[in-house]
Write a protein that binds this DNA or RNA. Structure first.
Lengths: 334, 334
DNA sequence: TTGTATGCGTTATCAG
DNA sequence: CTGATAACGCATACAA
């Protein structure tokens, strides 16, 4: 395991010069660089990450904190973050909390040791211990998708309200008047925003929105399944349902299938977040697609710029787009 | 940013004792531990990861190398690895190469700086530069899913051949005699093993296997789409198709849909690797399910044990299981 | 443009 | 059981 001193000796220069030459600094002669590189190559020299991190005061690792890496949405965010990070020679540490606030807090505190140069996070916790842990993060912090209460950091998100409003308005135009929503936890700002867009569409249509059509606090497949079953018991049944996110949609679809209802004849379905199998489901599911990959890239970018000393960065709002497939149709008149 | 010396001073002990107390070593008095802990807590002391890594000679980071983190199979592997790693207070660095051998090699070499204490990898590269890079890995190495030629390290895999043979035999029992396979790259040992199981089933059925029924070298959605289109042009058409992996299946399904063929009436489909939307596709897709999460855990476990000094660890073979859904049926007789 | 010397914050060795 | 101190391997300020 050759060290910098070995390289220096072989190249006939000082260790300082080795560092500079290998970083390709302008202040080093081309000739010297060549010598050093040759020596480094011959000795298979690779600078120690730990030593460098200690000496420079920060690592070349970016953290990504997500509720569930198994959810394709977050996996795409991860890929985007990683790609952008790689361009700046950073690597990514990914931590997935399984939607478990306790685990999340634990993970978060375990990263206060400077392992990470910066952190991009989508979190689910809301209690104070969690907020403290998030705030105590060393180095820059960027929020992805949603902002926990009381945390001040740049956020990368989509315009939830606007896109939802537009999509739901389309449902009204199709003739639906009884549109339900399976919404997420009340303290998720994303849930609030999507709900707000939903209400706006109702308002624009001049239709009253009965409370029973909104089911709060659902997350994951299980949540979607449960909520949909509740909605199916309503009388009259909603003619269309808007699902908070991809996994909620999957659960909802399973409930509908079990109830042997047909989409879109008996009920129309609109998902938030696309999935690559949605086109293959029977019928193909319409969805509001968030640019997950780009969100990841944007988050990395924000982190990198802060690491470069930039201050006062604002939120990044990316466009979400409606993808029309066959799960949406006018309500059947019977 | 309190350091270990501050804690030592406040607690009235030496830095060595602080280290020992905080690691809860048996050689330290309960009273001393209490003093040290109190001091550390009061100063918000968190040991520096970089300093520790430098001093101890290795980090607490495990690497995971995958072709595509966006593929749910690998995301589950990642989750398993991470969960197991967390139990031993390790974190995970995940690198996804987009199936790009060059990027893969680049990533690999960038990890020779000791960032990682160990590496779990599923790779796609085959050239020499790549093999060298993988072999030059610092610290323990574990292979997941498949083993590149010439690399010697413990492998976590499923019994591809056996499970494939069993599944294909079931198709023969249903009455199929013209079963095709969309296989992966010839130099993937997984492809070889699944193909071998496939041939075995043919042999057991006493049926000759025409070359045209095997399409080699396909990967990803695009590969599956292309291969399936080729198969559909065959005359007579195969009555059943076995797809190498999850994404290949997705591509194949799209081709079938475009051709307006019905599953399983016109053609039966069997996938390798399950996906959480397969039950919702019309019809629900039968699949051979690999325990991805468990594979990730096993990989982490193998890594951790090597880090603990264990040697001579062997391969881990986990069972894959056939999940019968509705995409498989006897061939229609017309 | 290059060299010297010191610091980075722990951990581990070796006494006591 | 605890303390003093030497690594760990690189980067940087300061000199030259």
């Amino acid at each position: 395991m050759a060290g910098i001193r070995d390289v220096a000796k072989l190249a006939g220069v000082s260790t300082a010069t080795v560092t500079r030459a290998l970083r390709d600094e302008a202040s080093v002669t081309a000739a010297t660089k060549a010598k050093v590189r040759a020596a480094a190559l011959r000795l298979d020299y690779v600078p120690s990450a730990a030593a460098r991190a200690l000496s420079r005061g920060r690592s070349n690792l970016l953290g990504l904190f997500v509720p569930d890496i198994t959810n394709p949405f977050y996996a795409q965010v991860a890929q985007g973050l990683e790609d952008r990070a790689a361009e700046a020679r950073y690597h990514c540490v990914i931590a997935s909390s399984h939607l478990n606030p306790e685990r999340e807090r634990h993970l978060l505190t375990s990263f206060q040791d400077g392992t990470l140069a910066g952190l991009a996070a989508t979190t689910v916790g809301t209690d104070e211990g969690f907020t403290t842990a998030l705030g105590a993060t060393r180095g820059p912090l960027v929020l992805v998708d949603r902002r926990p209460r009381g945390i001040k950091a740049p956020l990368v998100r989509t315009d939830n309200r606007k896109v939802t409003r537009g999509a739901i308005s389309q449902l009204f135009e199709m003739g639906h008047t009884r549109i339900a929503m399976i919404s997420g936890p009340r303290d998720f700002d994303t849930a609030c925003q999507r709900l707000s867009g939903f209400r706006l569409a109702y308002k624009a249509a001049g239709t009253a929105l009965p409370d029973e059509l909104i089911r709060h606090g659902h997350l994951g497949e299980a949540g979607g399944y449960k909520a949909m079953n509740e909605l199916l018991e309503l009388d009259p049944r909603p003619t269309a349902v808007f699902c908070f996110n991809n996994l909620v949609t999957v659960g909802a679809l399973k409930a509908i299938r079990e109830a042997r209802l047909r989409i879109p004849v008996d009920i129309s379905i609109l998902a938030f977040d696309d999935m690559n199998l949605f086109p293959l489901v029977e019928p193909p599911i319409s969805a509001i697609d968030q640019p997950a990959y780009e969100m990841g890239r944007a988050a990395a970018d924000l982190l990198l710029r802060q690491l470069d000393g930039e201050r006062g960065l604002g939120d990044v709002v990316l466009p979400a787009t409606m993808i029309m497939r066959e799960s949406l149709a006018p309500p059947s008149t019977r």
